[in-house]
Amino acid sequence: MTVRLTLVSPAASEALREVRFDDDTPLDPAGVARAEALAPALAASATAWTSPSARCRATAEALGLRAEPLDELAGCAMGRWRGRTLADVAAAEEPAVAVWLSDPSAAPHGGESLRDLRGRIGGWLDALASASGPRTAVVEPDVVRAAVLHALGAGDTASWRLDVRPLTAVHLTGRAGRWNVRMGEPLRVE
């Protein structure tokens, strides 16, 4: 069976603009308006999911999706860094940030490592591959990166080389062990 999965990154929010580790802040009015304007650009999907974060749930709703929040699609748990900006954390814990940026198995913040995130998302993706037909998930940018790395069998350190812009779509087509990836398509109304 072949599954067609579209991963959509959430609309911009204050946390994204401030380069802040998400603390479940909601979308601002501009993010909601942008997602609502792009709703016609997203192909209909009978099955849709969302990361449990407020910004992903709000983006899915604004896009007109009836999406079920799934805990397994949560963004990386950032422990004590949650809600802080990267600049603040780097100033206070420079060696810890350096380890986190260079070692995908490190979790100096007390949360989840990027390798663990990739394993969790890869397991979800492989289980999904037994289904067929179109599926959509509005998920955090780090979840998009983890899914792409898993699909391509790329090394964990490549995560830092994938830029996931707000309201873009990544399409995965295939099944466990063999995925094709179409990257970073901006949602747009023709």
Results as ranks from 00 to 15, higher is better:
A92N: 02
A96N: 01
L27R: 01
E18W: 06
A98N: 03
W179H: 04
G83D: 04
W160R: 05
E190L: 10
D23G: 15
S53I: 01
D142Y: 11
E18H: 09
G83T: 04
T47N: 06
R57G: 09
V164W: 11
L27T: 02
R120F: 10
P186D: 02
A35R: 03
V99S: 06
E112L: 00
A12F: 07
T85K: 09
P10I: 03
A46D: 13
R34G: 05
T85L: 08
T47A: 10
A158M: 13
V143Q: 11
L152S: 10
L114Q: 11
R175F: 12
R165C: 02
E14Q: 11
A15E: 14
L187M: 08
A12L: 13
A92E: 15
P52Y: 05
P141V: 06
L5G: 09
R34W: 11
A30L: 12
T59L: 05
G177M: 08
D142G: 14
A54I: 01
R4G: 14
L73T: 01
R66T: 14
P10F: 03
G155A: 13
S51V: 01
E94D: 14
A67E: 08
S53Y: 03
A147H: 08
E112I: 00
R82C: 12
R115I: 00
A169L: 05
L114G: 11
R57I: 08
D126G: 01
R115D: 08
D24H: 11
R84M: 06
G122Q: 04
G31P: 09
A92K: 03
G133Y: 11
E72V: 15
R82A: 13
G155E: 13
T47V: 12
V19K: 11
V138C: 15
L38S: 09
R57Q: 15
L7C: 12
L125W: 10
R161Y: 13
S53D: 11
E61G: 12
A151R: 00
T50I: 00
E185A: 14
D103M: 00
W160P: 02
P26Y: 03
R161F: 14
F21R: 06
S102P: 03
V170F: 15
L167F: 09
E61H: 14
R182I: 10
D88A: 15
E190R: 10
G75I: 04
L167G: 01
R178M: 09
L149C: 05
R84P: 08
P141L: 09
D88T: 11
V99A: 13
T2G: 03
P29H: 06
S9H: 07
T85N: 13
L16F: 10
R20V: 08
A131Q: 15
W100T: 00
G75T: 04
D23E: 10
E18S: 07
S53P: 03
T168A: 06
V164D: 10
E112K: 00
F21M: 07
D23I: 04
D24G: 13
M78C: 08
V8T: 10
A90L: 12
P52D: 01
V143R: 10
N180K: 12
V164T: 06
D103E: 00
L5I: 04
P141G: 10
G31C: 09
V189N: 03
P26L: 05
T85C: 11
T2M: 12
R20M: 10
L152N: 07
R84V: 00
A127S: 14
R57L: 12
G177L: 07
P29D: 13
A137T: 06
F21V: 04
A106K: 00
D126E: 13
V189G: 04
D71W: 01
